[in-house]
């Protein structure tokens, strides 16, 4: 099975993060790491590859500035076989429609260059933008079925063609949904426990092939992506004031009443 996993480098959430003057996320002054939600996607892709009866391949795909290649490298360290990095200055500031445009073009080129892709695995959202819409947009642009927010993925290859089945757990129902490959799947943080990259994986990663493509390589017009092409614009962004200490209610026989009054006042009840 030929699997593509889409990965993103995000600013380390434990560091102090900030915005650029144009209100895009400052990706330069903060250390980046592979989005935690994408680790689940990489892990699931590796498990599907390794559980299959035939040899498979996992290709990690990312887009973004030079440092974004670290997301691919981490995926390779975990066990992915090869990587693609779409690197182009025009990408900076891209929103979800532009991101899905570039990813779709990249997947088409991958398919044309090295054979059809059976499965695309994404995290359910990035931990910086947290839009959660790229997997759906990507499926739409590629004309593929989408199986999103999967808590479980099973692949059936018994009849010579892949059928992908996922379990979606919502508050009210558990759904089992399936589609014939090729298909786009997004996975939640409940689906698995991502592995630590083994030292052998870390040592082997630097020998694995990573291709760097420009927008023209994948056939995307730079005018269609980046901040200027974004469908929405962030007009202001300010850090929230630090949380205040809160209100202490000392119970003098009326504690319950005063708590209830507080909740009513704040419109919690």
């Amino acid at each position: 099975m030929r699997i593509v996993v889409c990965v993103k480098l995000v600013p380390d959430a434990t560091a102090s993060r900030s915005f650029e003057p144009d209100h895009t996320v400052d990706r330069v002054s903060v250390d980046g790491l592979l989005s935690e939600l994408d680790e689940y996607a990489v892990e699931e892709a590796l498990r599907i590859r390794d559980a299959a009866s035939e040899d498979g391949e996992v290709v990690a795909v990312t887009m973004g500035p030079q440092a974004a290649a670290d997301a691919v490298r981490k995926s390779l360290q975990m066990g992915a076989d090869s990587g693609v990095h779409v690197l182009d200055e025009a990408i900076a500031g891209s929103d979800a429609p532009a991101t899905s445009l570039v990813l779709a073009a990249t997947l088409r080129k991958l398919g044309a260059d090295t054979g059809p892709v059976d499965l695309v695995v994404c995290g359910m959202a990035s931990t910086d933008g947290t839009m959660g819409v790229v997997p759906a947009m990507l499926a739409e642009r590629l004309g593929l079925p989408q199986l999103t927010y999967a808590n479980q993925v099973t692949v059936d290859d018994s009849n010579g063609a892949y059928r992908v089945q996922v379990r979606r757990d919502s508050d009210l129902a558990t759904e089992t949904v399936e589609a014939a490959a090729p298909v786009v799947v997004s996975v939640t943080d409940q689906i698995n426990e991502p592995r630590y990259p083994s030292f052998k994986g870390i040592m082997a990663a630097k020998k694995k092939p990573v291709q760097t493509w420009s927008l023209s390589d994948v056939g995307v017009d730079p005018a269609e992506v980046g901040l200027s092409a974004a469908w929405t614009a962030v007009v202001s962004a300010e850090a929230r004031p630090p949380r205040s200490a809160g209100t202490v209610v000392t119970d003098e026989g009326d504690g319950g009443t005063r708590l209830a009054e507080y909740l009513v006042e704040k419109k919690f009840v």
Binding site: Y196, S198, F199, K200, G201, I202, M203
Partner: peptide, 18 residues
């Protein structure tokens, strides 16, 4: 062992060779 820590700086025989 799964991580590769044990004998990590040795080469061959399943060691990582760091």
């Amino acid at each position: 062992g799964a991580l590769g820590v044990l004998g990590m700086h040795l080469s061959g025989y399943g060691c990582a060779g760091t």
